[in-house]
Every structure is written in C-alpha cells, then in structure tokens.
C-alpha cells in the first residue's frame, strides 16, 4: 500500500513542518518514505512544493509522476490548483481557502474558489481564521494537517498526534498543546465532511 502527497504553498508558510511531522510519524510506523523538498531562502514569497511518498513497499523515485498523487495538501488555494496535473483523476485536494495575494496578477478569488470546488474531492477551510479564533494563530499549518489526516489511511491520527508532540517538544509544552489543538480542529472539520 502506498500514498503519494503533493505538499504546497508559498515560501515561509510552513509546509516543511507538515512534511517533518508526516515523516516522523511514518518513520515511527515503520513505513518507507521519500520526501523531495524545495530549499533556499530565495523561495521566500514564491511558490514552494514538496513531494512526499509513503509506502509499505520500497519507493524508487523521489518525485511523484504526473497523475500519480493521491492527495494535494496546500497552504494556499491557488497553489493547490498549480499541481492539478500531478493529481490522480480521483485524487483529493485539502487546502486553505484564503488567498495569499503577493503578486499583481492574482486571479479573481471567486472564480478560483469555484474552480477548486468543481474538483471531485475537495476540503477547504480558512485555516488562518480558525487558528486565530481558537487562540492558536501560529498553528494554521497543523489545522491543515488535521484536515488531511483522514485522507492518509497509512497513518492513524494518534500516530500523527504523537509525532506532533515529539517534533514540537523542544519548543515547550504550551506550543505542543497549541499544535495538537490545531490538528484536532482540522481533523474534526474533515471528519464532519466525510460523515456527511
């Protein structure tokens, strides 16, 4: 069994932290993993993406082929659209819904969200707002990870929670709790949609 994820967003939004948590959880679960990252300060404010492949079998390529991704997880709605050619025809998109507008020719927001919603499987949420409203404004990326969790059947939510605890432990207990809370908010949102 395998799952291929395309993680994306804008430089500085914290997609590599999501990748780190998934990597930690996958390693603890004894899964095979390959994760190709984009590095370098010059990507700040530009589009960034990471290919994350999890499998019970050996993985060869570090890159996901076109049409091969089971899931796109994006910190920004237009960035989710950028990688559609990599998504399987029945793949899912889990994305933040609030645009980050730092370019002059950003597309019309309503049209962009309508295009997103026309895809077969989409979960979107204003993760920054949710995180702020719940008093965990710096943990929006963990809200997104929680939203993605039901689409990653190789990893139980509890193993992701344990990974969050380990990754953030050196930053102190309050930061661990904030990130766990954010994760649960996202998870709850997706579970509601799944049960509907």
């Amino acid at each position: 069994m395998k799952i291929d994820l395309k993680l994306c967003g804008v430089g500085g939004q914290g997609i590599l932290t999501i990748a780190t948590v998934l990597g930690e959880a996958a390693t603890a679960a004894g899964l095979q993993l390959k994760q190709a990252e984009v590095h370098g300060m010059s990507q700040r404010g530009g589009d960034v993406q990471s290919d994350l492949r999890l499998s019970t079998e050996p993985i060869w390529s570090d890159l996901i082929p076109l049409g091969g991704a089971d899931l796109i997880v994006s910190m920004e709605p237009m960035e989710a659209l950028r990688y559609l050619p990599y998504l399987r025809a029945d793949g899912a998109v889990v994305t933040a819904s609030r645009p980050l507008v730092n370019i002059p020719d950003y597309p019309d927001e309503a049209a962009l969200l309508a295009e997103l919603d026309s895809l077969p499987k989409v979960v979107r949420l204003d993760i920054e707002q949710v995180a702020r409203d719940s008093g965990v404004p710096r943990s929006a990326n963990m809200v997104l990870l929680g939203m993605a969790a039901p689409y990653i059947p190789l990893l139980e939510p509890d193993s992701l929670r344990a990974a969050i605890s380990r990754i953030f432990s050196r930053k102190g207990e309050s930061i661990v709790q904030a990130n766990l809370q954010a994760f649960d908010l996202g998870l709850e949102h997706s579970m509601k949609l799944v049960s509907q």
Binding site: G45, D47, L66, M78, L81, Y86, L112, L119
Partner: peptide, 11 residues
C-alpha cells in the same frame, strides 16, 4: 492527471 488549472498565475 487532471488538466492544468485555469485560474493560475506564476508566483
């Protein structure tokens, strides 16, 4: 895969 998106700009 899916066709490229319409509402997309380089960043």
């Amino acid at each position: 895969g899916l066709p490229p998106a319409v509402h997309l700009a380089p960043r």
